[in-house]
């Protein structure tokens, strides 16, 4: 599953990112914000207009806005709630 397909509010871990699908500067920016393999993320909001773009992703105590193009390059694995703690 890619990040853009993740249901709202479901915690997930980024399994891998296809950096080659993204522009180099944008890849660097996403990495600087911590959006990289291993990060724990939650999809918080989606835009309303055509394409349900952009997306707001919670990572740690930070909320980051990005587009679906970026989210599509990130493979995520939902974290099962009972497996936590």
């Amino acid at each position: 599953m890619t990040l853009d397909q993740l249901p709202l509010g479901t915690p997930a871990r980024i399994a891998s990112v296809d950096w080659s699908a993204l522009v180099a500067e944008e890849a660097q920016r996403l990495q600087a914000l911590g959006l990289d393999a291993g990060a724990r993320v939650t999809l918080a909001y989606r835009g309303v207009f055509a394409g349900r773009d952009p997306l707001a992703v919670e990572i740690g105590r930070m909320t980051v806005a990005l587009r679906r193009v970026h989210a599509r390059a990130m493979i995520v694995e939902p974290i099962i709630e009972s497996a936590r703690a």
């Binding site: 993204l22 522009v23 944008e26 920016r29 996403l30 914000l33 952009p54 707001a56 930070m62 909320t63 980051v64 806005a65 990005l66 587009r67 193009v69 970026h70």
Partner: peptide
């Protein structure tokens, strides 16, 4: 140019 992205901390 390439479609511009939107990456921003809220």
């Amino acid at each position: 140019g390439a479609a511009s992205g939107f990456i921003m901390e809220l």
